[in-house]
Amino acid sequence: MAVTTGPSRRIVEIVFAAALIAVAGAVFVLSADYPAESAAFPRVLAALLALCGLIVTVRQLRHGTEAGGQPFFAHLPRFLLAVVILVAYVAAIGVAGYLLPSFALAVGLPFVLGYRRLALTVPLALGTLAAIVLIFNVVLERPLPPDVLMHLWETVR
């Protein structure tokens, strides 16, 4: 159960508020290196952000609501899986280009999430990618990330 649901909403509220306070602190410290006129505005904002983070934290600690005990994630493993796949997808674009990782994502993500009808996902992925290439590369003349398949495409064009 714990694996499926993960942290409670209250915990995430507090962690997020603490992160805001930390960011505000970092902004305040970093601003010290800037001339006074450039530092004033971000410093005021950072102070206000830290104050808001503090209010949210204190509110959660003092008057935690019933909803605060509810799990934050509806299904933590699926969320983490989606995040990992998305990060891997972006990293793969940098290495292999746009088309191959995109095809793998469009077919692979539903597959690992339990949707196994490849007869739908494969043609849909190919059709979507064809439309994207048509819109971006052919009509709008915008470059796609360099791809092994694009060399082939350029040859065909």
Partner: peptide
Amino acid sequence: RVVLAPLIILFVAIGVYAVNNAMFDLYILV
């Protein structure tokens, strides 16, 4: 909807990349 989710990512990723032709923007996006 589980099939639709990655298709949205495909459009978003290429749209964001095309703004500056930069991978940096994709990492910021995530």
